[in-house]
Amino acid sequence: MMDFMNELTLNHWTWFVIALVLLVLEIALPGVVFLWMAMASVIVGGVVFFAPDLGWEGQLIIFAVLSIISVYVGRTFLRRNPIETDDQNLNQRGRSFVGQTYKLIADMDNGRGKVRIGDTNWTVEGDFDGLAGDKVKVVDVDVTYLIVEPV
């Protein structure tokens, strides 16, 4: 094992490939963490390009320190400057249904029923007894179900 560690060499291309892998992970997984680590990897690749005699221990230490700093700075920046959107209902699909009227496709049973919106059946809740075919108006959303009232 020690022979392997003594002969381990990381060149600038290794760090650029690591950066590419980290970018793929950033795309595939939630959270903005791997982007900052990829940037640290690119910087280490640049350092190794200009200082090829830097040992793998030094490279890993530089990468670790730069990763910690870049993740901290990046997260702090995004916390202070959140990404704004014109669509207030982005990633909240149910919010776009508030104020709309739909027909029940199932009787209300213990305050719960179903409506069909597009190609999806949504569970609805309300404090009334409704029959299939009755019209209901969406007044609010509670995570996975719509809150309705009779029309």
Rank of each mutant, 00 (worst) to 15 (best):
T14H: 05
V48C: 09
G94E: 08
T101G: 07
G94A: 01
K114F: 13
G99F: 05
D87E: 06
T120E: 03
W13C: 03
A38K: 00
V48D: 03
M5C: 02
V148S: 09
Q88I: 14
I43G: 10
L22M: 06
M5Q: 03
V73C: 09
V73H: 11
T144W: 10
I69S: 07
G55R: 09
D142F: 11
E125F: 06
V48I: 12
E7T: 06
Q88H: 13
N89R: 08
F4A: 04
P150G: 03
G58E: 01
I117Q: 05
V141D: 15
W122R: 13
W122K: 13
M1I: 06
V141G: 04
R79W: 14
M5P: 07
D3G: 12
V71Y: 12
V115W: 08
P150L: 15
T123I: 15
R75Q: 13
D86M: 15
Q92L: 14
M1A: 03
T101Y: 05
V143G: 10
L60D: 13
T101W: 01
I61S: 04
L35T: 11
T123K: 04
V47T: 11
F16Q: 04
S67N: 09
L20V: 00
D140A: 11
G111F: 04
D127C: 11
W122D: 08
F49W: 13
D142L: 14
R75F: 08
Q88L: 14
V42D: 08
V115D: 07
W15V: 03
F97D: 01
E125V: 15
V33Q: 05
V139T: 15
D140N: 14
L66G: 07
L25I: 02
G99Q: 08
V115F: 05
G111E: 03
A28E: 02
A38W: 00
I83H: 15
D86F: 12
I43Y: 08
A132N: 00
L25D: 05
E84G: 11
